[in-house]
């Protein structure tokens, strides 16, 4: 153990954050303001998510941190080390073993279970921001449920690209009330937001907002009758494990135009390969 207070933040700060979380859980999709603290990492690196995780963490928790689905990228590694050092909690890469998962822009492929907490890092929590720059006005719009503007954004997409080209950060409506920004997860993950048995918490450090989806909350992706929502992914199977149902990253392998598609969820891919499943390039690359 170290000289840090458990999970870095002082107890009063954690209580303040827990109060915001409780309020967020009570009003699904509503952005609760909170007094975001300076964290020993730059804004944009998950300061909001880290504060939410710190407030939820207990010494018995098992923590998993992913960045775009991967357990071994810089952001994930540094946050995992941060909590190992300041909280001394056990960490894991296996989704099923974790009790708290902090994620940057993905929902794990392995279905979550009751009792798990998924913490999202959110850069811009306000879904209406790019259409309406005034904070006073967007708050009023949430208050009065004036969400026509959200569809103007989707209309512009179809007018310009022929289809709804928004592929991440896709706006959703929570329990028929608040329109919510699901943080920049790919829209492939949007259906997993709805009816999820895990508690989902969203923290935006710079913007000082926390919002939440309690377990089994109904979440609907916005769309048009004649242009329905489609959870899209690359038309491929994973080249390492052969999975056809997971979200894929495209990796350029040389300068001859060769490329491979691999699961963005590294834990999911590794588990499948350990079970003997092999994709197109699985033998040579792995």
């Amino acid at each position: 153990m170290s000289d840090y207070n458990f999970a870095y933040l002082d107890e009063q700060t954690k209580r303040m954050i827990r109060r915001a979380i409780l309020k967020g859980v009570a009003i699904p999709g509503y952005q609760v303001p909170f007094a975001s603290r300076e964290m020993p990492m730059p804004y944009g690196w998950g300061t909001g998510g880290v504060q939410v995780t710190a407030a939820c963490l207990t010494p018995d928790d098992v923590l998993k941190v992913i960045d775009q689905g991967a357990d071994d990228t810089t952001n994930a590694v540094s946050i995992r080390r941060f909590f190992q050092k300041t909280a001394g909690v056990e960490v894991t890469e296996a989704t099923a073993e974790a009790t708290i998962i902090q994620t940057r822009h993905r929902i794990p492929e392995t279905p979550l279970t009751e009792g798990q907490i998924l913490v999202y890092q959110v850069p811009i929590p306000e879904p209406l921001r790019f259409l309406e720059p005034r904070e006073t006005e967007t708050r009023r719009m949430h208050e009065l449920e004036e969400y026509g503007l959200m569809h103007v954004k989707l209309y512009e997409d179809i007018a310009r690209h022929g289809t709804i080209a928004t592929s991440y950060d896709y706006p959703v409506r929570v329990e028929g009330r608040y329109v919510m920004d699901p943080s920049p997860i790919p829209k492939f993950d949007n259906p997993k937001l709805s009816g999820n048995p895990a508690l989902q918490l969203f923290g935006a450090g710079r913007e000082q907002r926390i919002y939440a989806l309690p377990p089994y909350t109904q979440v609907v992706s916005l769309d048009f009758e004649d242009h329905p929502f489609v959870a899209s992914k690359a038309e491929h199977d994973c080249d390492l494990c052969g999975a056809s149902d997971s979200y894929l990253d495209e990796v350029i392998t040389d300068d001859q135009g060769n490329r491979m598609f691999v699961c963005s969820d590294t834990d999911y891919c590794r588990t499948r390969r350990a079970a003997g499943l092999v994709g197109r390039l699985g033998g040579e690359a792995a």
């Binding site: 026509g148 503007l149 569809h151 103007v152 048009f224 009758e225 242009h227």
Partner: peptide
């Protein structure tokens, strides 16, 4: 304005 009053057919 159409979308604000609930039009949802592109």
């Amino acid at each position: 304005r159409l979308m604000a009053v609930g039009a949802r057919n592109y």
